[in-house]
Design a protein around this nucleic acid. Structure first.
Lengths: 161, 161
DNA sequence: AAAGAAAGTTAGTCTAATCTAATATTACTA
DNA sequence: TAGTAATATTAGATTAGACTAACTTTCTTT
């Protein structure tokens, strides 16, 4: 029993992490509701996660993440969060679409790409003027009207380094 | 028989488009090799695509896209291309990873998000100085060293508008 | 044109992920 | 505390997508 997970199983793990964060106690029903699948499906998934050593689960009991499960889950959840951030704050997609898209693609990125995306979002966020907020505003204008807003140009100022 | 496609089936369609572009004639074997799956698997998929009216296929013959199949395939392929562009040119991931990641996530984005991404890439590409190429160079530095390169600052110059 | 190679198809099996229906356990409440 | 409601599990069926092995058709090569 290797530790190769299907993206499906990763979804369950991520859901458990999210529920854990707000409830501290996670049950089959909670996952079922959150993820929108039947309880038997959740049970089967928990069984798999348990065999992989990612959760502990006794019959009729709570579901608890192992150390390993938590680490992996956090990683997946991080991907999710950075994607949401990129979609919402940079591309400016509406929240629902962002959430939906992020869920679908979060398992597809390799670790390295995620690292780059994290850096990229940070880079954009911390851009000195005229990038940063204005830069994003400018993109929004560009998206809407197909051209850059008029009214300012920028030029590079060399500093003695 | 609706026109709801699994992303799996979309992969086949996309592969057909790509092969069509370079070979003009597409056979089961070509798809099998390109996509790395057995010929029976390809046959089964072609059967599905055929029932959906996206390809025409007579036994032992070539595979041809219908008008509808071509339209849809192009759309999927467009997503692929814009993702590759974003990954390679903006995030600067290595080509293999870019290709791999793009394949995995290309079915996950909603049409609207793709539109935004297309605009975004264009926006970055056409950024006037100090964005554009320099801006991307700057990001690369940022990715590598965790901070912006020293040596220039920018300031906004208002033009009479 | 006949033989062998390549390509395509069919048949049957497997796994992952889902479901519903039925059963079992636990929790709540009157 | 007894009965009901909520939750959890088991059993069994279904679907999609993959495979191998065996068979059929088409192509190629001598």
């Amino acid at each position: 029993m290797g530790l190769k997970l299907t993206s499906n199983i990763e979804d369950y793990l991520e859901t458990i992490i999210m529920l854990h964060k707000k409830n501290r106690v996670v049950r089959v029903r909670d996952i079922s509701r959150k993820i929108g699948l039947s309880m038997p499906s959740v049970c089967a998934a928990i069984e798999v996660l348990s065999k992989k050593g990612l959760v502990n689960h006794e019959k009729y009991g709570y579901i608890e993440l192992t150390r390993e499960g938590e680490n992996l889950g956090e990683k997946i959840y991080d991907s999710h969060k950075i994607l949401i951030k990129f979609l919402k704050e940079i591309l400016n997609t509406d929240p629902q679409t962002a959430e939906k898209d992020a869920c679908k693609i979060e398992h597809g990125f390799s670790a390295n790409t995620i690292k780059r995306l994290i850096a990229f979002v940070k880079f954009v966020e911390t851009c000195p003027h005229p990038e940063g907020a204005d830069w994003l505003k400018s993109f929004n204008y560009f998206y809407k009207y197909g051209k850059r807003p008029k009214g300012y140009k920028v030029r590079k100022i060399k500093e003695k380094s």
